[in-house]
């Protein structure tokens, strides 16, 4: 177990826990709101932030956070009324964000190897400064959930009813989108842009049907994510595989086992 004494492994474990918390909480909210496509749009549009950081030689994380927040708020403005064809609009922003990122990187001098870490994750090379930012974002997310749990619950369960009860749903929708953007950006550090959605959706999907409350779902999803990240990390270290992809395949394995088991379990049970 002397692997655990290696600083980069310690950082990876810390980053994994922090990202699991963010994905467990916000992923649950995304899944019960049926906003997975929206989260995917924000995750991919975040690539524009990567391009912007390279182009302007800015520190990547704050730049991506800023850009993703900006994109999330634009999407929030168009989805708050649940308008007709809002999914098309999300698809457009999704594509435009990625294209902007690619063009900006084309225009940046020199090819930067670090780019691949944004696409596929680089949990083994997470710098301490990023861990601090992640910790701050986690505290923000937990704080928002503790402070406004019943508001988020009301909005997720029945937005129209919440409006009739006088809840400023527009404000909370913007807050929700902003939190999704923050959580997405953090997950990019761990498993990469391409694989963000799996950590966001698999654990909440597995825990949704067993949870009696949204809060319970958030906690169990967080625990499930930590299991995925640790198992994936250990396998990737042991067999020298790409850590992000390994984490996702571990999650997918749990997902498949769950589906098969629940088939067997649900057969004799009466509804």
């Amino acid at each position: 177990m002397d692997v655990l004494s290696l600083p980069f492994i310690q950082h990876a474990i810390l980053a994994g826990i922090l990202a699991s918390v963010a994905c467990g909480i916000i992923g649950s909210l995304v899944v019960v709101n049926r906003s997975v496509f929206l989260a995917g749009g924000i995750a991919h549009a975040a690539y524009g932030g990567v391009g912007l950081a390279f182009f302007l030689s800015l520190p990547p994380l704050p730049c991506i956070i800023g850009f993703s927040l900006f994109m999330a708020l634009i999407m929030a403005a168009f989805t708050v009324e649940r308008r007709h064809r809002m999914d098309t609009f999300i698809g457009v922003l999704w594509a435009v964000g990625m294209a902007t990122g690619i063009i900006l990187i084309d225009l940046s001098p020199g090819y930067n190897v670090d780019l691949m870490s944004f696409l596929f994750g680089s949990i083994l090379t997470v710098p301490v400064s990023d861990i601090k930012v992640m910790a701050a974002v986690d505290i923000l997310i937990i704080g928002a959930m503790c402070g406004f749990y019943k508001e988020f619950l009301a909005m997720s369960y029945d937005m129209e009813f919440a409006r009739v009860r006088g809840l400023p749903v527009r404000l909370f929708h913007f807050l929700f989108m902003a939190l999704v953007a923050l959580a997405v950006v953090m997950t990019i550090r761990v498993v990469g842009l391409i694989l963000v959605m799996a950590l966001f959706t698999i654990a909440p999907y597995l825990t949704e049907r067993f949870s009696a409350s949204l809060a319970g779902m958030m906690v169990t999803s967080t625990i499930a994510n930590i299991v995925f990240v640790f198992t994936g990390l250990w396998i990737s270290y042991r067999y020298n595989l790409t850590s992000g992809a390994t984490i996702i395949l571990v999650a997918a394995l749990f997902f498949m086992i769950f589906i098969i088991l629940s088939r067997f379990a649900s057969c004799p049970r009466k509804p």
Binding site: V32, G147, F148, K150, E151, L153, A154, S156, Y157, D158, F161, A162, R165, G166, L167, P168, E208, R209, S211, A212, S213, L214, G216, M217
Partner: peptide, 21 residues
Amino acid sequence: GFPITVMDVALLGRLGLTGIG
């Protein structure tokens, strides 16, 4: 499919009487 109990659904009707936050 929403993870919520009967009690918690009923409680949401108190929204607006119990302040935000």
